[in-house]
Design a protein around this nucleic acid. Structure first.
Length: 271
DNA sequence: CACGGATCCTGATGGC
DNA sequence: TGCCATCAGGATCCGT
């Protein structure tokens, strides 16, 4: 579920309701990707001041520290009152006066990490290298072009790396490159100003649209992959290997880049 | 220091 | 039905 749009939609779903709440208790089930950093009981009594997002991380500002939550590949959060006992894949609960925030994550690639203060080494390690936020004013097309000029890797892998721009995951990388008409294998530094400008626009467009639509559009499509066709608003190329391009009818192709599936239209996307 | 590969973990799916 | 291989929306670590 979790690329930038899904994480942002998750954040919006509980940020205002949890803000101002006081932590009543916290508990950790099976270990996640990284240790919490403190005993869960130490979160008790802290107030939740705000919920922010950086890349695919959710940041809960507590009165006495920062709680970083990452959903990994398979994580999801619910915030509700009266949640029952944790299920098999529920690995973290934060019980507050306003409700309980619960992390469900079958694959446990996600993480919940506490840092006593924002200058903590853990925070720096996790967030320090992250690139610019694509939906912020700070995402500048000229600077984006300059950054891409420095990189020789294929553009799709540079997008996924997250040190130039954050939040673009495997689905939206394929989608944005399709919208921009750029072949995913094209070396980053070979992209000229005009094409980078198109990519800049495409990234903002696809992410903003996904947020506006509740982050569910592509996911629903993916789940319905190969099934009936009520997903007109779905992906242009992701998950559509062999199917006709929605723009030119050429069969969509797939390949592996860094162990991840890439989808593209060989006709619409130029090297 | 940037790049490419291996790696963590569980579940769903498809072929035989 | 069982068994096995493959694949899945992420990101870090390590060798080169």
């Amino acid at each position: 579920m979790p690329e930038l749009p899904e994480v942002e939609v998750t954040r919006l779903s509980f940020a205002s309701r949890i803000s101002g709440a006081t932590v009543l208790s916290a508990s950790m089930g099976k270990p996640l990707r990284w240790p919490l950093g403190i005993a869960p009981e130490h979160l008790k009594g802290q107030r939740v001041l705000a919920v922010r997002r950086r890349g695919k991380y959710l940041l809960l500002d507590l009165s006495d520290g920062l709680l970083l939550v990452h959903l990994g590949m398979s994580g999801s959060l619910v915030f509700a009152q009266g949640l029952g006992e944790p299920g098999k894949h529920d690995h973290f609960d934060l019980q507050t006066t306003e409700g309980t925030l619960r992390l469900n994550d079958p694959r446990r690639f996600g993480a919940v990490v506490f840092a006593p203060d924002p200058s903590d080494a853990v925070v720096h390690k996790l967030l320090g290298h992250l690139g610019v936020e694509p939906l912020d004013e700070g995402f500048d097309a000229v600077a984006f072009h300059q950054a891409l000029q420095q990189r020789s890797a294929p553009i799709k892998q540079v997008l996924l790396a997250g040190d130039v721009v954050v939040g673009v995951g495997n689905i939206y990388a394929s989608e944005a490159l399709f919208l921009a008409g750029i072949r995913p294998t094209t070396r980053s530094k070979r992209l000229g100003r005009v094409r980078v400008q198109r990519l800049w626009q495409a990234i903002r467009q696809v992410l903003a649209l996904a947020v506006a639509q509740g982050g569910s559009t592509l996911r629903d499509f993916s789940n319905a992959h190969g099934e009936s066709g009520h997903f007109q608003q779905g992906a242009m190329v992701y998950g559509r290997a062999g199917q006709p391009c929605r723009q030119c009818a050429t069969p969509v192709r797939t390949l592996k880049q860094g162990q991840r599936s890439t989808f593209f239209c060989p006709q619409c996307q130029k090297p």
